[in-house]
Write a protein that binds this DNA or RNA. Structure first.
Lengths: 322, 322
DNA sequence: TCAAAAGTGTTATCCTTACACCCATGT
DNA sequence: ACATGGGTGTAAGGATAACACTTTTGA
């Protein structure tokens, strides 16, 4: 077996917060114009665990004290962490999802908040099917699916056409909001993500000029972001994680708007309210908010007791009219 | 920030298969009498990805060609990978779950199949509440909960008593079959897992003599196994992963018995059959099996098409009479 | 007065759960 | 005959999804 040399572990955090009712992530803007997630190497001599390393590192860089933190996945692909020369150590990156309540103060590294749909615009169906899907992505994916897939090393249980059907709801299939990562990875594999070109993938030769399909990111950070979005969309439905993004008190409408922003589609108002209340997720504070644009709304707070109650509670909900 | 030195990435696989209707895992028996999961270091020069590294490594050691493989979690705790002296590199371990259909041939390393409930006996409720819980674990956990928890570094959202209630169904709460990892970690933290003593944890001083609470494992492998069991119990309910453990054709009774063995409790027969059939998970092969001890049973096979259909299909099922 | 959002009420449908019962085979 | 597991039918209950409608505020 070959040598074991020069491994470094990178900790990346997709730190999600809400500003103006929209989900944002904390990014740093690099010199080459590509955004990056907050990133730091794991230093085992300083940090007892990976989680502690991540927290310490984010604190040092941005002053943020992270609350909810969840490990997502560990990626080890050579070639997706490359930048030009690539003579450094092999980097294995551990992705994290963190949820915060407030706007972070801009840290020394110049971190700032950016809308997360800027990176994955095809994931936002709140205003109907995104034009970028119909106009740009689908036609190209169809061409890609028509080619044989001998060249790629993918477990060939499914054909390209079947994968398109499942991931991108082609041929009348339903759009599965949780398949964010699968979609991004497919776009990368098809050479439609700008990162594929940067990494020197073969499939890119097939395309002449490509519009920008979502803002690209440094290293494999867009993949980490996609993983974070997948996880959050899934977890929302069976754990009360959404409240890690909200202030202490909020109206049901605010809650709904944020859930919709995370899921990327509209929900049915009346049923949403009833489900949330019946599930015992919230309790009224007694106050009302008059900033609603309409009738004043009761303010609610998260009932922390639910963490001690039923094993699974979340905001499970199918789609509905806007 | 401190130095970055001597990191090694270990790949561990909890390889699950079925023998005699019971789930087993592939283990190697080490010199000191403690079992270990198949383990190998990640060699980035040889392997393009972590998954490929794991597959190659398992192939070399056991001759097994893994099918279904899923990354579980990456653990970086110093002190839980220690063995006596501990002067080696810091080891970050990436845990995997793999499912196989057939008994493996014993590999050169002397790997063998062991019942997975041997390591986590409190997880098997198929014959009622396990005696080891009532007789050994619960009384000790109550004593542990009565002590203050100043010494441990745990995010103190919950008290020890609340954690017991949630993880171990104390005070009338329901047993959540998916909390396998949380339970094992709590036992470790309380010093009730033999690994805690090996790792030199403080809490151990509190106990005089402890019976063996499940077979311990080398390094943090029992934690990886617990993670695997948690994941499998959860995933079963929304993805058709169970069929990765079954031969091409099987009776519904065999299917049910294996699901029960994974979940650790009995299911309601009639409803199980209907749910599985209604969900379109299986189709009859046309043959029957006469090895049933009763009326011959129709043989079924997994309908691979479901992978192309509804976004979530699995064997979701609440408990029922035995 | 109107737009915007807060709220209430009702109903159809599906899924889960539970119970009752008959069928075919080997010993 | 009887034990064992295979297999079918049906009904109660709860959760979801889809409607329609009223109320209260600010502009």
């Amino acid at each position: 077996m070959g040598g074991q040399s020069g491994i470094e572990i990178g900790l990346n955090a997709a730190i999600v917060g809400v500003r103006d009712g929209q989900p944002h992530i904390l990014v740093t803007r690099e010199g080459n114009g590509w955004d990056a997630l907050p990133y730091g190497p794991f230093a085992p001599l300083d940090h007892r665990t990976l989680d502690i390393g991540l927290r310490n590192w984010v604190r040092e860089q941005t002053g943020l004290e992270l609350g909810y933190v969840e490990q997502l996945y560990t990626f080890g692909d050579r070639g997706r962490h490359a930048q030009r020369g690539d003579t450094g150590p092999h980097i294995v990156s551990v992705g994290y999802l963190a949820l915060i309540t407030e706007d972070p103060a801009a840290g020394p590294g110049g971190a700032s908040f950016a809308r997360w749909f800027g990176y994955l615009p095809w994931e936002d169906w709140r205003h109907g099917k995104p034009a970028i899907l119909t106009d740009e992505i689908e036609p190209r994916l169809k061409r890609w699916a028509a080619r044989p897939d001998q060249d790629d090393t993918h477990d060939l249980v499914l054909t390209r056409r079947e994968r398109l059907r499942i991931c991108f709801a082609m041929e009348g299939a339903d759009w599965d909001e949780e398949k964010v990562l699968e979609r991004y990875e497919l776009l990368y594999e098809a050479g439609l993500a700008a990162e594929a070109k940067r990494d020197g993938r073969e499939a890119v030769k097939f395309w002449d000029k490509l519009p920008q399909l979502g803002r690209p990111m440094q290293f494999d950070h867009r993949r980490v972001l996609a993983t974070a979005m997948s996880r959050l969309r899934g977890k929302l439905k069976y754990r009360p994680v959404i409240f890690e993004l909200l202030p202490d008190s909020f109206t049901l409408f605010e809650l709904q708007k944020i859930v919709e922003a995370i899921l990327g589609h509209h929900l049915h108002k009346q049923n949403f309210r009833r489900l949330v209340e019946n599930a015992g997720l919230v309790e009224p504070t007694g106050d009302v908010s008059r900033q609603t644009g309409g009738r004043p709304a009761k303010l609610f707070r998260f009932r922390r007791d639910v963490l001690l109650e039923r094993p699974s509670t979340g905001v499970r909900m199918k789609g509905g009219p806007g």
